[in-house]
Write a protein that binds this DNA or RNA. Structure first.
Length: 788
DNA sequence: CAAGCATGTCATGCT
DNA sequence: TCAGCATGACATGCT
């Protein structure tokens, strides 16, 4: 944050203002966008990764949720997660949102229209969205689903919102102005950036494209040539792709530059009130472009009425009767708010997810730094916070992406309408639609409440996006739901974590879980509750020790080593800070110096201490220090066998062992205490693990319920919309029929005196209004029958 | 230094 | 009755 604030020093702002005043538009975003990754790594990489919380959060990730926080499999999971993100990033354009506020500050109301006239539909309602972005912790992370789900609520609305909708003929102006950016201007900007670089961050920090080229060894500080080359490339990209000089496209990111500019203008120019009105007018109808013409248009008239329509044929055949529109609007608005409320918590989680992403990316090898998922997150959050200072911001990447993506892939087809919800009270809406609806990068954490909704986010947003797909692209609901099911199954969202191969109980701790695993009890019958042993480990133990009672210290060693071997975590720097002894259910370490190998089983911290202490103290003392109290007591009492044996032997063998040795009463008492405590310790560990698992399952249940609720609300809104549409159609038909009716003399019936009534058999009767009430009392009057 | 966390231990109840 | 398990509560140590 601090770093980024430096970016927006007065000098830069003033300079930008200056440029804008003279009509030159500098798309600083282009610079920023592609330069983020390194900065993210610099700023957030370590900080977000080296916390236990993050570590635990990882459990909630989509495919990692089944992994217990203490599981070694987290390592594997990290890799999978990272790869998954990379794959996802392939179809989610992740252009970090870099909001340079200077654009917002100086914007003239006059230019609003022109700015709003951007051709990109996605920017239509960015005004409110800008505020959303202010709080957006992680635009890129949500980009995938976020963009889609946003479109869910905004698609048609945008089209139908002529008010904000850009006009094709005006976008030219913006683009031209961008094109007018002279080399000198760029050089000036470059100078400013170098100043920033001196402050500690290079342009590459924001240079997404350069990040992709990290493998080629880009260095943030060697900007002079490289930066200029990139500028050239960038401009070339513009020239190459703009074709008719209209479309500015970043050659590497596919980012449409003028869209950014116009979006800025749009955001800046629109008032919050306007945004709110637009939102209210748009939202209920925003989901289905099919309905735009009939539904949305009449209700979108408000502020949009006089405004130019979008280039996407928003010349809607205006005006059908608005009958109950306000009521429905309110109703649906409430529903929307309910959904937002649901998702509100999710918003916070996005930050968590961001951190999770950071964790993943941090631990990822450097040559994979190109992972798109990795940088947008933190960077955008930083910048967005900065933007908030101005009470305005640019649209989040999530918002931009669809249009950018579309423009890149199918420029002729035009952009899918992507209306951003806007509202003056941006808190809810912003968080909900601006931030939450971003699936691409979701790494649903499992940690407690914060992580609760992350999975919800992804899954829900995915399904929302599917629903959108169904609505927008003609998918049938069945198809969408089918996809949704597939998505769910793929996402591993099944509640039944226990049955998952990667379920916590299986993956959990090294010497794990036999509490639920019958296999363990086969080896150490007495340890049926000791639990947490994996089958393989048990098998190993079996092989070495025999099935019955052949317990040897190596078992403990195996377990501990398998669990605590730092090699498992050498790729997870963030785990280095976690020094707890995660030896759930491990047999107690032997207290005997003749088993020095056991010392190797202690945690890294222990070993570090060991290294330190062995330099100073004799091994014996160190062993004493490392031993548990019971071990020390046992040594002091000269107990002739290990605590491991005392604790883990089956009761028969244990008694047999005691009988073999002639022990004093004190020794016997101590041995029994040791056994009791050892058993209880393992029981406590199992108990805690069970608690944890229970909590996780409950969290998942809550997530599912929330997702269901959101889905039902969405369906409800859909139904309401359909009903409204049907009502309007009926109304149209009514008027049409009524207008064609003629009395005996060929004169039309005055609508004020007559009305149509529908009978149960489908016939339509024209009835004097005065008789309507009477008819209700006397069923049969003398209507003139007219059947239609 | 306090807070949060992990772990060990004890007491208690249950099987 | 005893051994063992489950669990709440508390203590301790670490970060």
């Amino acid at each position: 944050m601090l770093y980024l604030k430096k970016y927006f020093t007065e000098g830069l702002i003033q300079f930008t203002i200056l440029l804008s005043l003279i009509g030159v538009r500098v798309d600083v975003d282009t610079y920023l966008n592609s330069q983020l990754p390194p900065l993210r790594e610099i700023i957030l990489g370590p900080s977000s990764a080296y916390t236990q919380t993050q570590f635990h959060n990882l459990r909630n990730t989509l495919d990692g949720y089944g992994i217990h926080p203490k599981s070694v499999e987290l390592d594997h999971f990290f890799s999978i997660r990272r790869l998954l993100n990379q794959v996802r990033s392939l179809d989610h354009l992740r252009v970090p949102t870099t909001e340079l506020n200077a654009w917002l500050v100086h914007r003239d109301p006059e230019t609003v229209v022109s700015a709003a006239s951007q051709s990109s539909p996605s920017i239509a309602l960015d005004n409110g969205g800008s505020l959303e972005d202010v709080n957006s912790p992680e635009p890129s992370a949500m980009r995938g689903a976020g963009s889609t789900s946003e479109s869910t609520y905004s698609l048609s609305g945008e089209d139908s919102l002529g008010a904000v909708a850009p006009e094709a003929n005006q976008e030219q102006g913006n683009r031209d102005s961008v094109d007018e950016l002279s080399k000198e201007d760029i050089d000036l900007i470059d100078i400013l950036w170098r100043q920033d670089i001196d402050l500690g961050a290079g342009r590459e920090v924001f240079n997404y494209s350069s990040r992709q080229k990290d493998g080629e060894g880009d260095k943030p500080d060697e900007v002079n040539e490289e930066a200029s080359v990139r500028e050239e490339d960038w401009r070339n990209g513009i020239n190459l792709q703009e074709g008719q000089g209209v479309t500015l496209v970043d050659g590497e990111t596919g980012e449409s530059i003028p869209e950014e500019l116009s979006r800025l203008g749009t955001q800046t120019s629109m008032s919050l009130q306007e945004c709110l009105r637009l939102l209210e007018a748009t939202f209920p109808f925003g989901e289905e472009s099919e309905f735009q013409a009939t539904d949305a248009a009449p209700q979108l008239r408000g502020p949009a009425e006089n405004a130019p329509s979008t280039s996407q044929g928003l010349s809607l055949p205006a005006t059908l009767p608005q009958t109950d529109a306000p009521l429905d609007l309110e109703q649906q608005w409430q529903d929307i708010m309910a959904i937002m409320e649901l998702q509100e918590m999710d918003v916070n989680n996005t930050a968590e997810n961001t951190n999770v992403n950071n964790v993943n990316n941090t631990q990822a090898s450097t040559n994979e730094s190109g992972t798109m998922a990795s940088f947008g997150v933190s960077q955008s959050s930083l910048i967005n916070q900065d933007v908030s200072l101005h009470q305005a911001s640019l649209p989040s990447c999530s918002q931009d992406l669809p249009s950018l993506f579309n423009s890149e892939l199918e420029p002729s087809v035009g952009q899918r309408p992507n209306l951003r919800l806007s509202s003056s009270n941006s808190s809810n809406i912003n968080s909900t639609f601006g931030v939450t609806n971003l699936t691409g990068l979701f790494l649903p954490p499992l940690n407690s409440t914060n992580n609760l909704t992350s999975m919800l986010d992804e899954s829900m947003l995915d399904e929302i996006s599917l629903l959108d797909l169904a609505m927008v692209e003609g998918f049938s609901q069945a198809q969408a739901s089918q996809l949704e099911d597939e998505l769910d199954s793929d996402s591993g969202l099944s509640l039944d974590s226990g049955q998952s191969p990667a379920s916590p109980s299986n993956s959990e701790t090294s010497c794990s879980s036999a509490a639920s695993s019958s296999s363990t009890s086969a080896t150490f019958s007495e340890e049926g509750a000791v639990g947490y042993s994996t089958d393989s480990e048990v098998a190993t133990a079996d092989a070495e020790e025999g099935a019955v009672g052949g317990y040897q210290p190596e078992y403990s060693k195996l377990c501990r080593m398998s669990y605590q071997d730092p090699s498992h975590f050498h790729n997870l720097p963030q785990l280095d800070s976690i020094n707890h002894n995660h030896t759930y259910n491990l047999p107690l370490a032997s207290s005997y110096p003749e088993q020095p190998e056991l010392l190797g089983s202690c945690s890294k911290k222990c070993r570090d201490k060991h290294l330190q202490q062995t330099k100073i103290h004799p091994p014996r003392e160190f062993i004493d220090k490392q031993s548990s109290r019971d071990e020390r007591r046992a040594r002091a009492m000269k107990i002739p066998f290990s605590n491991d044996k005392i604790v883990n032997l089956p009761v028969e063998e244990f008694n047999e062992l005691l009988s073999k040795h002639h022990l004093s009463e004190a020794q016997l008492s101590l041995i029994r205490d040791i056994r009791r405590r050892g058993k209880n310790k393992m029981a406590a560990q199992n108990c805690r693990k069970r608690k944890l698992d229970t909590i996780i399952k409950l969290e998942q249940g809550v997530q599912d319920l929330r997702r269901d609720k959101a889905r039902l609300l969405k369906e409800k809104m859909e139904c309401l919309r359909c009903i409204r549409q049907m009502k309007q159609k009926v109304q149209i038909l009514y008027q049409e029929v009524f207008s064609q009716l003629r009395d005996e003399e060929g004169r039309p019936y005055p609508a004020s005196e007559y009305c149509l009534q529908y009978s149960a058999d489908g016939s339509v009767l024209i009835t004097p209004r005065s008789m309507t009430l009477e008819q209700s009392r006397k069923p049969d009057k003398k209507p003139k029958d007219k059947k239609k």
